[in-house]
Design a protein around this nucleic acid. Structure first.
Length: 820
RNA sequence: GGGCAAGUGGUGGAAUGGCAUACACGAAGGACUUAAAAUCCUUUGGUCGAAAGACUAUGAGGGUUCGACUCCCUCCUUGCCCACCA
């Protein structure tokens, strides 16, 4: 076969059609065969595929194809996360509608995936904007309502003024909208929430079972869930006697509290300032802070603003009277919205106290510089030490005192141990059009009425004008909004908000198990067989959002009795970004490389190979055109090797000479290495092992070869390379294998342990740790013979001469080190 | 401020206690060719040396070890994530 781009392109097309026409990668549940579920995070359909997709999905495809050859029943599906705002924005820009735009993008992507030769089960392709899919979003929502997990509440929410919608906490990155980077403001709205916090403990605990997840993803989730143990201490307002609980994790510093601070939104504030001289001033301050966005609050940095509100609090441990302040650095959402300030031992309190000339009281003494006083401190002392000025607790180490103090407070009923979580309930209402309608109806008589299950789906009307100017388009669609109440049949109105699209993607992996089931959200039996996902692959950017939500849904489904497992994804791989000139490839930066153009020039297999060879999958990958060129060359050499050397109809030879044995050893060693490396995502070293074998095989004697050995080499190349460069290997297999099977159905090669054994090994000899010689010695040579071989060498003698040998260290079959 | 990664030739990277720089890219030289492309061969961390070879080198500095890119401590730099979270 001639190896030129035209030939390659036509054979790639030929095999892609063959796989599709013969449904090679469509699978059925079969309990007699072990299953393997390979899943990549499904794409947002935004147009043609980019290098990021190519990398993510090539990694998944190699794993899926290898597992299939290894005899697993492999589920490898794909679909589209098709709802969401970009479609709406694109529709406005191109004067089309989101549905048309999305469908065109899906077609383009589908085509791109076929061109990459990915081994998908196309019969399970899904799109979340399809009513057969989002019907089940609505069904899940109703189930959650039933269980009290979906509820509506009025609250101050994150609002993106540019997207004109609310955002979940997880979608606010450094005070900015995760999508458009606009500054997020706060707004009071009545919105739908999912009670993910009911699962806080479970979500945290089960992280420990995820042994095959990257540690940093686990760490990020732990951080986000944010469990902290502390004490709620009951301060009292001196004037009114009202209870004023504060939350702290540093109860060891309670005797050092010199003032109390409330968040500006704290409900006590307005009561306490009523009628006092500075009422207006304080109210104005609180109002001012409430308006400031979170970004600005943070950007203000260390400068902390606050004001005394005219009342005092009583510290229950010593009945001391300390002033109550309001300040911008205390957040209403965390703890009780009130803190005790210990300026001597908390840097934020320290800065605030200095700024406002508030007193300090040292209660932890640094053993290295005893007798420091508050006047000499230039920052808070936050390290460990021994308690002072703390009555009966004096002299105890502050860490040891934590439990002692909380126990004592509980006994005295002046506080209680509590656990606080950082995780908030998940706000899912979005004031946007292109999403799943929330299946709820508002009736003046019956109140909030869920749509009956039999009336699902609530279909998203598609003939709608999207202008992008103010308000949800659905709210303007009278046919959609005006309905009869399902309970009392009087006039009622539909909810016009749609669901956040992260809802859609929180369970799609279950839907793939029975993708077109019309009766159920997914079939229990199919989910039992396929789930959990054995290998999940996607970007690190989903480390918190999508992965946390999916874990939450899984736990919810388990509680519903629909599934039997706790965690959806057994093994997780987060692949690195594709960069060009040191920056992430993006359309806005104009540094993208079009996969199509690369395929045009070098073919799909070369693209796949080069992207895997260039870097380990978790690292960033700097794109380099030359790398594809190199991949092309390698594939060409493999192809030529098999064309030139393979001869059919030869029987196996037995009497191997040394050169034959060496080739045989390398063949078996390569099978071992490639099998292990591919299983551990070490694609780059697997490929280099194949290159090494080729370099060696090409040098193997041409004149008098053992043909059986050569044929075996050819087969090993085709089989080991098949998951990476499937088109070429299919073609090569036609020449060297049985023609009734595609190479993807041929068994993965195994290696012969015996062939790996050598009778001689190269042992490195060191003198004082420096390499001074290398020796071929018999395998497992004993100390005496090693001493004899090594010490009789002239060069070693030279380095040892005139010195006494103190030690003779032997690492069997590897190294000897003579210490003189 | 907290957490987690990472730092190795001209470049991507390999080696996770035992020959540092595998494999590849790039570069230089050569063969084939009227010529070019393609292909093949050779060289390629640095310094000294004609060579044999010696010394030196994995961000910096210390430590453990017969032996350290690898383990420990301190520091520097870069990237990512979180962050007035009490």
């Amino acid at each position: 076969m001639s190896y030129d781009i035209q030939t390659i392109k036509s054979l790639e097309k030929k095999w892609q059609e063959f796989w599709k026409d013969n449904k090679v990668f469509e699978v059925k549940e079969d309990t007699k065969i072990p299953k393997y579920y390979v899943l990549e995070m499904f794409p947002y359909p935004s147009g043609k595929i980019h290098m990021g997709h190519v990398r993510n999905y090539t990694i998944a495809d190699v794993i899926a194809r290898m597992k299939k050859m290894q005899g697993f029943n492999v589920l490898h599906p794909i679909g589209y996360d098709a709802f969401g705002q970009p479609a709406e924005n694109a529709a406005i820009k191109h004067k089309t509608d989101p549905s048309k735009w999305t469908n065109r993008c899906i077609e383009e992507m589908h085509e791109g995936f076929e061109k990459m030769g990915f081994s998908y089960d196309w019969s399970r392709e899904i799109a979340t904007c399809d009513k057969d899919y989002y019907k089940w979003n609505q069904w899940i929502f109703l189930k959650m309502m039933e269980k009290g997990l979906a509820y509506k509440k009025a609250s101050s929410v994150n609002w993106c003024p540019s997207c004109e919608t609310t955002l979940a906490n997880e979608e606010v990155i450094q005070g900015e909208c995760w999508r458009c980077k606009s500054e997020v403001t706060q707004k009071d709205l009545n919105q739908w929430y999912l009670k993910i916090t009911d699962y806080s403990e479970k979500l945290l605990e089960d992280l420990d079972t995820l042994k095959d997840w990257p540690e940093r993803v686990v760490a990020m989730q732990k951080n986000w869930i944010g469990k902290s143990y502390g004490v709620e201490i009951y301060f009292k307002v001196e004037r009114t006697g009202e209870n004023l609980p504060v939350f702290t994790t540093r109860q060891d510093t309670i005797f050092g509290a010199t003032y109390v601070v409330l968040a500006p939104e704290h409900p006590l504030v307005s009561n306490l300032i009523k009628g006092i001289p500075q009422e207006k001033e304080v109210a104005a301050f609180c109002e001012k802070i409430a308006k400031v966005s979170k970004t600005d609050r943070i950007a203000g940095g260390l400068k902390k603003e606050g004001i005394f509100i005219g009342s005092y609090a009583i510290n229950p441990v010593n009945n001391e009277k300390i002033p109550i302040w309001v300040a911008d650095y205390v957040l209403m959402e965390y703890g009780t919205g009130a803190i005790m300030a210990v300026p001597a031992h908390d840097q934020r309190d320290f800065l605030f106290a200095k700024e406002h000339k508030l007193p300090m009281c040292i209660v932890i003494q640094d053993s290295k510089r005893p007798d420091i006083s508050s006047d000499v401190l230039d920052e808070a002392y936050e390290d460990e030490g021994v308690l002072v000025n703390s009555e009966q607790f004096n002299g105890i180490g502050n860490v040891d005192s934590l439990k002692k103090i909380s126990d004592w407070m509980e006994k005295e009923k002046i506080g209680k141990s509590v656990v606080h979580w950082r995780l908030r309930d998940w706000l899912i209402s979005r004031q946007r059009y292109w999403g799943t309608p929330i299946p709820v109806i508002y009736c003046d008589t019956c109140g909030v009425v869920p749509v009956f299950e039999k009336n699902l789906p609530v279909v998203l009307p598609e003939d709608i004008k999207i202008t992008g100017e103010g308000g949800s388009p659905l709210a303007k669609c009278k046919d959609f909004v005006n309905v009869k109440c399902p309970k009392c049949k009087k006039d009622a109105k539909r909810e016009t908000d749609t669901m956040a699209t992260f809802f859609d993607s929180s369970w799609y992996y279950l839907r793939y198990c029975s993708a077109h089931n019309e009766k159920e959200v997914f079939s229990k039996k199919d989910a039992d067989y396929w789930m959990p996902v054995d290998q999940y692959i996607g970007g690190i950017e989903h480390a918190i959002l999508h992965l946390l939500y999916s874990r939450f849904f899984t736990k919810f489904f388990k509680d519903l009795g629909l599934i039997k497992f706790d965690e959806p994804f057994t093994r997780l791989l987060t692949q690195g970004m594709v960069l060009k000139d040191g920056e992430v490839m993006s359309k806005s930066k104009g540094n993208t490389v079009d996969p199509d153009a690369v395929i045009e020039k070098y073919g799909t297999d070369a693209l796949r190979l080069s992207i895997l060879f260039a870097a380990p999958p978790e690292d960033q990958l700097e794109w380099n055109d030359n790398a594809v060129e190199g991949a092309w060359k390698f594939l060409s050499r493999v192809s030529h090797y098999i064309d030139d050397r393979f001869t059919s109809g030869q029987s196996e030879e037995k009497d191997f000479d040394d050169e034959d044995k060496e080739l045989n050893r390398q063949i078996n060693g390569t099978i071992k290495k490639v099998t292990e490396d591919l299983s551990n995502y070490k694609f780059n070293t697997a490929i280099s092992a194949l290159m090494i074998l080729l370099n060696h095989a090409e040098k193997y004697k041409y004149a008098d070869p053992k043909q059986g050995l050569v044929n075996q080499t050819c087969k090993v190349f085709a089989l080991l390379l098949a998951p990476i460069a499937p088109h070429l290997c299919e073609e090569l297999w036609q020449k060297i294998g049985k023609k009734d099977k595609t190479i993807s159905e041929v068994a993965w090669p195994t290696y012969d342990e015996k062939a790996l054994v050598v009778d001689e090994v190269l042992v490195v000899a060191q003198v004082n740790g420096k390499v001074r010689g290398k020796f071929q010695v018999p395998l497992d040579a004993d100390e005496a013979s090693l001493r004899e071989i090594v010490l009789s060498d002239d060069k070693i003698k030279e380095h040892v001469a005139g010195k006494t040998i103190k030690r003779f260290i032997i690492v069997p079959n590897k190294i000897v080190n003579i210490v003189v």
